[in-house]
């Protein structure tokens, strides 16, 4: 029973958890959100650019997008974050006087996520029937407007769930920014947990951080599922009028015995 009591105290020391909560709310949560949201937005914009380059008719653009994606998807996130921050941090300081590595953390997360988001967008755009581009062009739209107004909106809609999953991954990956050594006001959830754990010799601060992460990611995961289901059933409802009775019955009928 001693072991159980020990484990309980190691992970669930409520006093320590209570003590760490204020700084998690005041510092950790805002920083995690700023890191995830800003790199999510930049990553989405860069990702769209990569996707359009990846399907462009210009071989140089395709080649650049391919190379970029291969590199940033192929590297461990922590390596990219360290290399970008330590490598470009001094350059940033030189030109802007900003000494904090925090912006470089955002940049590194953006670069990483854009490689994944680019692939998500590309697969969505390429899944749109070729007839859509042809129809838009036949009406008299140029290639650019056809893509922008007809093809891309349909492709993006299809990959919204995958895009949301990428954002969830970004919330978790933002914890890696602790490796670049930010100031105490710039610490995100994980680092506050880690620092407090080091100070108290107890793992309960990690549990507090975990609760924060789960409070962010679990609702988002369910939001993804909800969007996904809505996109699917939305289409099914659209078609409902056209479905023949025997077609609708097939699921229960033939399927059940098969």
């Amino acid at each position: 029973m001693d072991y159980l009591t020990n484990l309980g105290e190691t992970f669930f020391d409520w006093k320590i958890i209570g003590d760490v909560l204020p700084s998690m709310f005041a510092v950790g949560l805002p920083n995690t959100l700023v890191l995830a949201i800003s790199s999510g937005i930049i990553g989405t914009m860069l990702g769209m650019l990569l996707a359009l380059m990846g399907i462009s008719r210009n071989p140089v653009a395709r080649w650049i997008a391919r190379g970029y994606t291969d590199i940033f998807r192929g590297l461990p996130a922590i390596l990219t974050i360290l290399a970008i921050s330590l490598g470009f941090g001094p350059v940033l300081r030189e030109f802007t006087g900003i000494t904090s590595p925090y912006p470089m953390g955002v940049a590194a997360l953006s670069l990483i996520s854009s490689a994944y988001i680019g692939e998500i967008f590309r697969s969505g755009i390429q899944s749109v029937d070729k007839g859509q581009l042809e129809a838009a062009r036949a009406l008299g739209f140029g290639y650019g407007p056809s893509m922008r107004m007809v093809v891309v909106p349909q492709g993006v809609r299809r990959v919204l769930p995958a895009l949301m999953n990428q954002f969830i991954a970004l919330i978790k990956d933002s914890s890696l920014v602790f490796t670049i050594g930010v100031t105490s006001r710039e610490r995100e959830l994980f680092q506050i947990g880690q620092d407090t754990a080091a100070n108290t010799g107890n793992l309960s601060p990690y549990v507090a951080a975990a609760i924060f992460y789960l409070a962010l990611t679990i609702p988002l995961t369910h939001l993804v599922n909800w969007i996904d289901a809505r996109l699917r059933t939305g289409r099914a409802q659209d078609r409902a009028e056209k479905i023949e009775p025997d077609e609708a019955a097939a699921v229960v009928g033939k399927g059940a015995h098969g």
Partner: peptide, 20 residues
């Protein structure tokens, strides 16, 4: 060619209406 295509209407086998 974009201007030309405005002068020629085209109807496809698969309709190709914009579903969104």
């Amino acid at each position: 060619p974009d201007i030309l295509r405005r002068r020629i209407g085209m109807v496809f086998q698969q309709f190709n209406l914009f579903p969104h």
